[in-house]
């Protein structure tokens, strides 16, 4: 019975060895190491060559590893010398012929794992859909990746000093004598969830490899805005008001190494905005109750201010720092 325990222990070691051979040690040298890299794709020998390139290192290395574990091999041969009764009597060819039930992932050995790492992402935002006032500004995002594909995080935008009333706005106003309500932003704060469904790599000029991923993000926000008085600037002076908003976006991240990347993101911040009233209540122009649009398209009802849904689409170009800088593979993916 006790001999069988040792045998079971050895068999367990044999069973585990292929699983632990997915990745190679840093010090791996020589043809075997190189072959492992080529097969895994991590060695960048075959990033785009198709199915053959995507077979995991495990396809090659278990056989090599198992070869070392036969009774004639190095490690277990010693056990057999010490205790012949404990020597495993496995038909390695038969064992090798067994169907593998490993999960084969489309992209083995991801270059930069995100799981359980923080991402610090400073960026600059550019307005993408407002012809009249652009709202560029700096931003900072902090995400924590709960898994390799799912993160929770926050980001903040500052617009205060950077709102720009465009020349186009002045030209339209001068040519048509039609004023368009303008809004400026102060800041925004967002709670986000990020999902990374796509990961890939490119060979640049057939010479170097870089990895990238694509992600979707959405969340709930607070944003402060106020109208820029254009209809009656002599009497109207708006205060910033905070609104609840939602955001959704897509992004692309290119990894320059395992902890640093460049990001480009398109984010739509959606919020109910109060616009300046297009008409003036001449009886009481200084009364703030009449300053906001009531949805009457410049009529004279001067009812309660009516919010309109605004989409502020922003392109965000930035860099990503992943912390901690290093990580360790535990799984083939």
């Amino acid at each position: 019975m006790k001999n069988s325990r040792v045998g079971l222990l050895v068999a367990a070691a044999l069973g585990i060895l292929p699983a632990t051979s997915w990745a190679q040690g840093k010090g791996a040298k020589g043809p075997a190491a190189a072959a492992g890299e080529a097969a895994s794709g991590e060695g960048e020998a075959a990033p785009a060559e198709g199915e053959a390139a995507d077979k995991p290192a495990g396809d090659a290395t278990p056989a090599e590893a198992a070869g070392d574990e036969t009774p004639e091999g190095g490690g277990l041969a010693e056990i057999c010398k010490i205790d012949p009764a404990a020597c495993p009597n496995l038909d390695m060819e038969k064992e090798a012929a067994r169907p593998l039930r490993e999960s084969i992932y489309a992209m083995q050995q991801i270059f930069a794992l995100r799981a359980r790492r923080f991402e610090l992402n400073p960026y600059w935002g550019f307005t993408f859909n407002d012809q009249f006032v652009s709202h560029p500004g700096p931003g900072l995002a902090l995400n924590y990746y709960i898994t390799n594909v799912l993160a929770v995080g926050v980001n903040g935008n500052y617009f205060g000093l950077f709102n720009i009333d465009s020349e186009f706005n002045a030209q339209v106003r001068r040519a048509t004598r039609v004023a368009v309500p303008l809004t400026e932003y102060n800041w925004g704060a967002n709670l986000n969830f990020t999902y990374v469904p796509a990961y890939g790599k490119f060979a640049g000029f057939g010479d170097f490899i870089f990895h990238y991923d694509a992600y979707v993000v959405d969340g709930v926000d607070a944003i402060t805005t106020r109208p820029i008085p254009v209809i009656d600037p002599d009497n109207r002076n708006f205060e910033y008001q905070t609104k609840i908003a939602f955001n959704a976006g897509i992004g692309l991240r290119v990894f320059l190494n395992r902890w640093f990347g460049v990001t480009l993101e398109m984010r739509d911040y959606i919020f109910p905005d109060k616009l300046e009233a297009l008409s003036v209540n001449n009886a009481d122009p200084g009364n703030p109750d009449y300053w906001y649009d009531d949805g009457n398209h410049g009529g004279t009802s001067y009812g309660k201010a009516k919010a309109r849904l605004t989409n502020a689409v922003q392109a965000q170009l930035g860099v990503s720092f992943f912390l901690p800088f290093s990580f360790e593979y535990r799984l083939p993916k």
């Binding site: 585990i16 060895l17 632990t20 051979s21 997915w22 990745a23 190679q24 040690g25 840093k26 791996a28 040298k29 020589g30 043809p31 190491a33 190189a34 072959a35 492992g36 890299e37 080529a38 895994s40 991590e42 060695g43 960048e44 020998a45 590893a65 050995q109 395992r258 990580f327 360790e328 593979y329 535990r330």
Partner: peptide, 17 residues
């Protein structure tokens, strides 16, 4: 010994590649 070897790979600039 084998669990220690399960680390991320480094790009080797020497060897057959």
């Amino acid at each position: 010994a084998f669990s220690e070897s399960a680390q991320a790979q480094e790009i080797l600039l020497t060897g057959p590649l």
